[in-house]
Amino acid sequence: MSAVEVAGRVLVAIVQVAVVTALAPIVMGVTRQTRARLEGRAGAGVGQPWRDLRKLWRKRPIRATGTTAVGVVAPLVLLASGLVAGALVPLVVAAPLPQVPGDLFVVVSALLVGTVALALLGLDAGTAFGGMGSSRHMMIAALVEPTVLMAVYALSIPVGSSTLSLIVAARRDDPATIASPAGVLAVVALAVVVLAETGRLPVDNPATHLELTMVHEAMVLETSGPDLAWVELGSWLRLTVLLGLVANLMVPWGVAGGASPGALLLGVVALAAKVVLLGAALGAGEVAMAKLRLFRVPELLAGSFALAFLAVTASYLVA
């Protein structure tokens, strides 16, 4: 690979990270706004998450006494994990970075690093709430893991590689695989775990501050100011990246194959349209749904694991 080509790929990755970072708060705003409108409220507007971030950046952070460096480092690690996932997942362009192809196992591990950082942040202050959120968060993460890998496995069998951009490109070039039983089952399973991973209904209610149901909010109770801004941005990035991944697996068209400006622009527009639509759908869906009891969540995850397992067997035996 020539130096120019490498530089091109890196430039593309930078564009993709920038676009995803700019989009993440907007996707969140769209989700909240849709929800507000459907519930009969006026809503704060699509730009409110960005305004929240600006407000938080200006605030003076308050740290609970007795906390450690984890309080400072964990928000940045969470952010980094979201950004790395944003750089590796084929959102705008389906062309792997040199040396760091978007290997699905690597992407999953990068996200797990963020999960762990958040869980440690919850434990750091030594409050009952933080520990509770952290414990529930890790339980869900542990049970989500098998489904994620199983879905990855199912998706990678037809392509013969776990590199995400190859999977997306293969689906784009051969649309028949999208509608194959294995492909559909795997994407549905993946969609369920995305909800669990990002703390959306029916697994966690992002709008609650009731101790019986909190997961994510319980962990960030002691975080404030810019630290909180990084945590929020990191979680939103995670949601946007995973939504974008699901969108590109379902509708792989519009993803650029090369680094030409026209294709890039199309890729950016297509991505924005897809994730905003999915965000709105997520908001609409959440209005109609109640949160599951915490101990019913494993049943949901077991269901999605079964789907993913069926997908694997289908791709072995049907294909």
């Binding site: 999960t115 993460a141 890998l149």
Partner: peptide, 15 residues
């Protein structure tokens, strides 16, 4: 599936 479940639980254990 077993490896994945193990990896997930190991994460919880060491956190």
């Amino acid at each position: 599936g077993v490896i994945a479940l193990t990896a997930g639980l190991a994460l919880l254990t060491f956190v």
